[in-house]
Amino acid sequence: MSNSTVTKTGDRLVVLHRVSKTYRKGDEIIKALDGVDVTLAEHGMVAIVGVSGSGKSSLLHIIGAMDRPSSGEVMVAGQSLTELPESGLMRYRRQTVGFVFQSFNLIPNLSALENVMLPMEFNGIVRAERRARALALLDRVGLRQRLTHRPRELSGGEQQRVAIARALANNPPLILADEPTGNLDSKTGQMIYELLKEISRERTVIVVTHAEALAQMADRVLPIKDGRLQAVAWEKEQASSEILGGSRHA
């Protein structure tokens, strides 16, 4: 089976070329990713789906520069992550991507507002502007009334909305969400997906998920198995071809 996906013309935000990731576990070498080629456009929602251990999170972490590939090239927003030094990767994580974690990962002793302001502080934005932008983002995710609440005082859905606002803080072109509804009930999960879907109209949102139903909301689905992308969901990709791009190699 081909380990590639369809390319559609359009602005390319993410380009992966023959990306592999291997881990050593004792004497055994585990291939988390095996020669992945994929190109993603500047807008839209992409769902990476697959069973546990298929390599979907590894792919997300490599795109997010949380981890480095063993081989291959990763280009995001015109910059090659493979060549970036650690300081460049730090700036990349700060300015180009926003993370949404399954367990929300909000700093427990900071309020919702302060959590959203935090990435902007790393980016050197002045306090007044940080506050104004954080207020606007929390307003957008419907948490204007919960500004001063600490994470433990918020529900799971509210915490994830704060995390989404935080991911948007530095206005990155790419949002990466790793099982964002994994710790939420289905109704709340649906709300989060709708929020991510809305955000994907202005930037690229890549979501790793187990949930088949939620994946159906994505503009493009990238099934992954044993570290290799699978050529399925053609209809959906073609239907959303106005937004997304990809190439299929033999």
Binding site: S87, M90, R93, R94, F99, F101, N105, L118, F122, N123
Partner: peptide, 12 residues
């Protein structure tokens, strides 16, 4: 995990 999160958010 917090340190990892801060790094993922771009903290130096």
């Amino acid at each position: 995990w917090e340190i990892g999160t801060l790094k993922a958010l771009g903290a130096s």
